[in-house]
């Protein structure tokens, strides 16, 4: 069993979590072009290495950010959303 550390609930089985994809900058819907919007919706960096991602602890519906290495299957850290964005991430 693989363990993920939920910032709210502590270490839990990774089966309780839902992978929500990369943390991306959301373009301004009112002013962005169609190309920028479809790029945001569908196109992926799909990095082989360290990525920052949204994860959800499904039973408690708690959303947070995790940094993961997609080559080694390691979870480097998990952070509350508020901590992640005050720490100067994109």
């Amino acid at each position: 069993m693989k363990i993920m550390h939920c910032p709210l609930n502590g270490p839990r089985n990774i089966q309780e979590f839902v992978w929500m994809g990369d943390v991306k900058k959301v373009p301004d819907q009112a002013s962005c072009s169609d190309a920028e919007w479809t790029d945001y919706l569908f196109i992926e960096d799909n990095i082989a290495g360290e990525v920052d991602e949204w994860w959800l602890h499904a039973p408690s519906n708690y959303l947070f950010v995790a940094r993961r290495n997609t080559l080694t299957d390691e979870i480097l850290w998990t952070k509350k959303t508020s901590d992640y964005f005050t720490d100067g991430a994109p």
């Binding site: 994809g21 569908f42 196109i43 992926e44 960096d45 799909n46 082989a48 997609t70």
Partner: peptide
């Protein structure tokens, strides 16, 4: 995605 990145474009793909 890794090879298309060498060619200079991105894909709608997750691995």
């Amino acid at each position: 995605s890794r090879v298309s990145a060498l060619a200079g474009f991105r894909l709608p793909i997750k691995t």
